[in-house]
Design a protein around this nucleic acid. Structure first.
Length: 556
RNA sequence: UGCCCGAUAGUAUAAUGGUAGUACGACAGAUUUUGGUUCUGUUUGUCUAGGUUCGAAUCCUGGUCGGGCAACCA
């Protein structure tokens, strides 16, 4: 038997080692700690899959903790969207927690630090503090307030809490080492004054802890065993550890991995917010956005996103993943699950000259050829006049063109073989009609014609066709790494959205179910848009099918 | 030019001192009533210079390159 043991990523190795050595009694508790100031994106999905996946794999649990220490940017709207996205991805947290739940405890920790002589109230301005921190090559200098007595610090900190000072008048700083080569250890700020309404604590507080004084302590309060975050927090780890040690609280450990970057998109919340605010996209859930809600509206499935996150791996090396891999993952999923339907996006008329004018037939087509039994079938009306795709006819075809051209034959999917005999152009030279004859004995399923054709094309019966709006999406940016551009918005792809107001669909597609993916045969995967209504159906293209002909035809 | 992190095919990711493997991509072929799917095959890689060792992607040293750090953001 071949040993198919899957290799572990470095975090799984750490966890296995900890379990092996009996650390925390083998307990595994992770957390996913979003700040509720924006929508979750595919990069968060990587973190979610990692944190929840780690816990699941080793019999542990994961908390959802909102890191809500900055009341100015945080809103309940974001809390709700974040919870919704996590659930949609298929994960369930053990406890829903908020850093703001710990404000009292955190305040107590600050007092303890002051009492130990390890924190002081500083009256300096923001600029003065920045200047006194020195530079990476030059050590910092103490401000005039560094050596206040414990009593004075205690009194002032309490006064800060009691609202005696305006925003920015004072801060609480840790007293560590102004000469430390790690800038984060040069007396970092612990608390600042913000007379602001907090989405959960209202006006109870006018001082709020900084990230560094909240995150690690929250981990510790919850007894998180493995606190997983991204690489930019590596230099914060010594401070994380220092606070835990000085406060003598549960020793959570922080581990860092490289965040996900995807080419042809941006991932920072700030930039995504700009795209929304400046109307480059419709909203946070615009199908071109790399947000979870955008991907969902685009037609991505939870399984495809989870799968993607597992395939990209986890390491500490900076990376830029090809969106092609994301597209592979959704095609892989939808190929197995999407029901097949026919739709013509850019129509020209095909007339079967030897088919009786008043005749029509009801043909059948399987729903899903990837599944035994096809998951049932649907009726497809057929008649003398059909819509076909403009690109499926060429007056003068190149070599290896397996579609319609004068004298060429194709099969109409689920129907008959037809032979092109003629075509009609308008005054502008555009082909408007293709005239064919059909082979009556070549009907799908009962073909006795013996004719073999290379190509099969999709179609929709003209008198039975329904009209819908179809939205085709392309990458939002024209360059691989838009964030590298000083003004990333100049690299936006002006053609990222193409709206087809009148696409023709086979009648059964009117029964499409929201949230389900459909393959428009030969065109791609589509799903109903959230704004679609029975009166005005709108389909979003999730992703095209792989198109080797497009590549072939572009050669030479 | 202070500190920290990293460097394996085009992109990611394994190999934990002992045959450099996997996925996606690319290329070629087979199958196909979707130029889809599926299947088969091919291609391409250890940043660099030394050192340790019977043996180095792996350990050590120097260098190069990339990224991060001096927000009352997280």
């Amino acid at each position: 038997m071949v040993n198919e043991e899957k290799s572990l990523n470095f975090l799984e190795e750490i966890v296995e080692e900890d379990i092996h050595t009996g650390k925390h009694g083998g307990r595994v508790l992770t957390r996913f700690p979003p700040e509720p100031n924006g929508y979750l994106h595919i990069g968060h999905a990587k973190s979610i899959v990692l944190n929840f996946g780690l816990a699941q794999k080793y019999g542990g649990k994961t908390n959802l903790r909102f890191d809500d220490t900055n009341p100015v940017t945080e809103e309940t709207e974001y809390v709700e969207s974040i919870k919704n996205d996590i659930k949609w991805l298929g994960f369930q947290w053990a406890e829903e927690l908020y850093t703001s739940d710990y404000f009292d405890t955190l305040y107590g920790y600050a007092v303890k630090l002051i009492e130990k002589g390890l924190a002081y109230v500083d009256d300096s301005t923001s600029e003065e503090i920045a200047a006194s921190k020195g530079t990476p090559t030059e050590s910092g200098k103490p401000t005039p307030y560094r050596d206040r007595s414990t009593e004075e610090n205690l009194r002032l900190f309490e006064a800060m809490r009691d609202g005696k000072y305006p925003d920015g008048a004072k801060v609480l700083r840790a007293k560590i080492d102004l000469a430390n080569p790690n800038m984060h250890l040069r007396d970092p700020l612990l608390y600042r004054i913000k007379h602001a309404h907090h989405h959960r604590t209202g006006n109870n507080w006018c001082i709020y802890p900084m990230y560094d004084f909240a995150h690690g302590q929250s981990d510790s309060i919850e007894q998180i065993t493995h606190s997983v975050c991204t690489l930019e927090f590596v230099p914060h780890r010594p401070l994380y550890d220092w606070l835990i040690e000085q406060l003598e609280i549960f020793p959570s450990r922080q581990y860092e991995f490289a965040r996900l970057n995807l080419n042809y998109t941006v991932m920072s919340k700030r930039k995504l917010l700009q795209l929304v605010n400046e109307r480059y996209v419709e909203s946070w859930d615009d199908p071109r956005m790399p947000t979870i809600s955008g991907l969902r509206r685009r037609g991505y499935t939870p399984a495809s996103i989870r799968n993607f996150c597992e395939r990209i791996g986890v390491a500490k090396r900076e990376n830029i993943i090809d969106v092609g891999l994301l597209e592979f993952c959704i095609r892989e999923d939808l190929n197995k699950t999407a029901w097949r339907r026919m739709a013509v996006l850019d129509p020209i008329k095909l007339i079967i000259t030897n088919y009786p004018e008043d005749n029509q037939e009801i043909l059948v087509g399987e729903n899903n050829p990837e599944v035994e039994g096809g998951e049932g079938e649907r009726d497809i009306p057929f008649s003398r006049e059909l819509w076909i795709e403009r690109e499926d006819f060429m007056e003068i075809p190149p070599k290896k063109f397996f579609r319609l051209a004068p004298g060429l034959m194709v099969r109409l999917k689920h129907a008959y073989i037809v032979k092109c005999e003629d075509f009609v152009k308008d005054t502008a030279g555009n082909v408007t009609e293709v005239h064919c004859v059909y082979i009556p004995e070549s009907k799908s399923g009962e073909d006795t014609s013996g004719i073999k054709v290379k190509g099969t094309i999709h179609w929709v019966s003209v008198p039975h066709a329904k009209t819908v709006e179809v939205r085709l999406y392309d990458r939002l940016f024209n360059v691989e790494n838009p964030a590298a551009d000083e003004n990333f918005k100049t690299t936006i792809n002006p053609d990222s959205l193409q709206i087809i107001e009148n696409a023709y669909i086979e009648p059964d597609l009117l029964n499409a179910v929201p949230g389900k993916g459909y393959q428009f045969i030969r065109k791609g995967y589509f799903t109903l848009d959230t704004k679609s209504t029975p009166e005005n159906p709108v389909f979003n293209r999730t992703v095209t099918l792989r198109d080797t002909w497009a590549k072939e035809s572009q050669k030479d």
